[in-house]
């Protein structure tokens, strides 16, 4: 019997791949966003509302991750934006190797923004770096204001929180202040946006944050 010391990160393979992707995105001047939420919080709807306003100014690509179907990619393509669907089968998250493979479908030399809509899940995607610049987490007002307290690991790795479906606030018991307080307790630097894809409230504010991020990453 022999002991062999290893001391290696379990996900080192994914970390290495993600680091290589991040290097590539930097070289090409592409801002990359990893969008996460529970199923149905409104990730695709937010993209529909936001990208319509950005597509004339920027070259955009979208990678859609879902267990099954290419419905979301179809929704994005309807806007005239290039979208590639990854079906994970059973897996609850995307991994860097899947992103690397999808990039064959895109022309990074002519791209300013790449959005990765992750599989609807608030646990697993937090452990898998995809080489993104930042993670943005969406929580909708129908899910309960204690979502950040229940899924702290996702809040901790996110740069921004979008509270979506604000048009439904009057019908649900959702205390926006409480939700923000919890989230900021876990991640004090978290940027907060409040949006409704129904009324368009807050979409402008969120879009201009995104546009600023694209500009600062863009190759001059």
């Amino acid at each position: 019997m022999e002991k062999i010391n290893i001391e290696e990160k379990i996900l080192s393979k994914n970390i290495k791949k993600a680091d290589a992707l991040r290097e590539l995105f930097k070289e090409k001047g592409v801002f990359v966003l990893n969008l996460v939420s529970s199923p149905g919080s409104g990730k695709t709807s937010i993209l529909e509302s936001t990208l319509t306003g950005l597509k004339d100014k920027y070259n955009i690509g979208v990678i859609e991750g879902d267990l099954q179907t290419d419905n979301d990619a179809k929704r994005i393509r309807k806007l005239g934006i290039k979208a590639h669907q990854i079906n994970t089968g059973g897996a609850c998250h995307l991994e860097a190797s899947g992103i690397e493979k999808s990039l064959e479908q895109f022309d990074l030399d002519n791209m300013d923004l790449l959005i990765i809509e992750n599989v609807g899940n608030l646990v697993c995607p937090s452990s898998f770096d995809l080489g993104e610049d930042c993670k943005v987490v969406v929580i909708s007002t129908t899910e309960g204001d204690d979502k950040p307290a229940k899924y702290p690991s996702m809040i901790r790795v996110s740069s921004a929180l979008i509270i979506n479906k604000t048009d439904l606030l009057e019908h649900v018991d959702f205390n926006t202040e409480e939700c923000i307080k919890y989230a900021k307790g876990i991640q004090p630097d978290l940027k907060i946006f409040q949006t409704s894809c129904k009324t368009g409230e807050g979409i402008k504010h969120w879009s201009s944050w995104l546009a600023e991020a694209i500009e600062s990453k863009r190759k001059s």
Binding site: M1, E2, K3, I4, N5, I6, E7, E8, K9, I10, L11, S127, A149, P152, S153, R156, Y182, K184, G185, I186, P188
Partner: peptide, 29 residues
């Protein structure tokens, strides 16, 4: 994870450990 300083209540906490996800060693024949 939702924590503020047990002494002064500040949220400006630096994480020293708790993020580990690693393989330490194996025993083989």
């Amino acid at each position: 994870m939702f924590f503020s300083c047990s002494n002064c209540g500040s949220y400006k906490m630096e994480i020293l450990s708790g993020e580990e996800l690693s393989i330490k060693e194996i025993e083989v024949d």
